[in-house]
Design a protein around this nucleic acid. Structure first.
Lengths: 242, 242
DNA sequence: CGGTCACTTGAGCAGCGTCAAAACCCGTGG
DNA sequence: CCACGGGTTTTGACGCTGCTCAAGTGACCG
């Protein structure tokens, strides 16, 4: 029975039974985090690599004036940077959004595994590239999209990512993000998020309520967002030599 | 006589004479690009790793409606992602801003060099982490800073990065970016950029003109920007094992 | 059943965009 | 050397998107 991490990596590279076993071992003893608990804080010295197995987390930063900006969502299956611990201090925090279960893989473990399992290494590097693509897409959204386009675009992204981890049923999936969290991620105020969600609902594009998102009209949603899934790199280069 | 790339990497790891020689070789035959010429376009298959030796470039994306968003500046010494060619297609373009000189290092060359020169590998990975930190800082800026804060923050960043590559003299450095380019990078309109630059000039914080930026009052500029240099990781972890 | 938190809605405002015109800069060619 | 032309910079007037402030409703939990 494989977890979300394995499922996600399997989308990015061909994994042998042996590879899967190694991943099982390394994620066997996750740690539980409470809602709003920090996995690591800005300024802390980086430690193990985090892999979210269950629940959601986010990377965030608090400005001097108290405003918060979320820079990435980590959903089940997502890991954070491989090489962080070359740095002396974290430049941002990572926080559980709801209760979450997180595997913590030491640098040594990680290195051994990637050395012994090239396919895993390949998948991890690819995942990292996709994460960078997502960051760039966020920059584009914040810079050049209107609020309704921004919200629609994020929902398209999260839906596809959730589907990649096998977390969607049909047109619906669990999205445990409050409007406050969405506001912090999209650089808006909660009240404006609320109005935009209403507009999207009335337009018949999507409906977000009580922790789950329903895509009412995928075509319309994609069109509002100006969404192009290129950057998620679901179609990878075939047979990459290491 | 070492180039900007070597100078930058030397800030990130202890480089031996041998390491430096390897870097010299691999950057010995740069290619020249004209202003506005693409190094690579969105949709293209990724090829060699680019290293900007002279001039500036930017990562960018054009939206369906014709708007452009710049997601990163590459100044002399900067390289682009190590592992890109695991992906089938670029999700963004890279373009020279003015005339530029760019080394193109093949995957094979890069891998051999990083294998034979662990210090170079370390420096490259660290540079990559810093670049990610910069992207996150841009997200924060776009989401939660006012236009004047955003401009001031970018200038602080560019000044420190330029200094790291030895490209500043005292309080001034060459910044060959038009107001149009700045607008595309900061998610604003050129006319508003213009007004903000005027405001910063009148406030006695900084003056940008004719391709060069003068910091008039560093303290004031940093204060306006709410700038915290953490994310550039100029203080690295000591003696990192690989 | 009361307290806290998230959500919802309205009214008014301001930061930044739009549109437009003029001044400037610089390379080019007569 | 000067006139020309394209791009950039500058400035003004006006409007819209999204923020602020405020009040009220609903959901969940102890």
């Amino acid at each position: 029975m494989s977890n979300r991490f394995i499922k996600k990596l399997a989308n990015l590279a061909e994994l042998s039974a042996d590879d899967r076993r190694a991943l099982e071992i390394v994620t066997a003893h996750p740690r539980r985090f409470a809602a709003r608990q920090d996995l690591i804080r800005e300024g802390d010295e980086p430690g193990p690599v985090f892999v979210v197995l269950d629940g959601w987390a986010c990377r965030y930063k608090i400005l001097p004036n108290g405003l918060r900006q979320i820079m990435a969502f980590l959903m089940p299956g997502d890991a954070c940077d491989l090489h962080v611990n070359m740095l002396a201090a974290m430049d941002h925090g990572i926080q559980a959004i709801g209760p979450a279960s997180v595997a913590m893989i030491s640098r040594a473990q990680m290195q051994a595994m990637m050395h012994d399992h090239p396919a895993i290494a390949r998948a991890m590097y690819t995942a990292q590239l996709v994460d960078e693509g997502i960051m760039r897409a966020w920059i584009v959204s914040m810079g050049r999209r209107s609020s309704i386009e921004r919200v629609a675009h994020l929902m398209c992204e999260l839906y596809l990512r959730a589907r990649g981890a096998g977390m969607t049923q049909d047109t619906e999936f669990a999205l445990p993000l409050s409007q406050i969290i969405l506001a912090d991620a999209l650089g808006m105020t909660p009240v404006h998020i609320n109005r935009v969600l209403k507009e999207l609902r009335l337009a018949g594009a999507m409906a977000l309520r009580r922790g789950s998102l329903t895509i009412l009209d995928p075509v319309k949603l994609v069109q509002i967002a100006g969404f192009d899934e290129n950057y998620l790199h679901r179609r990878l280069r075939q047979a990459t030599a290491i």
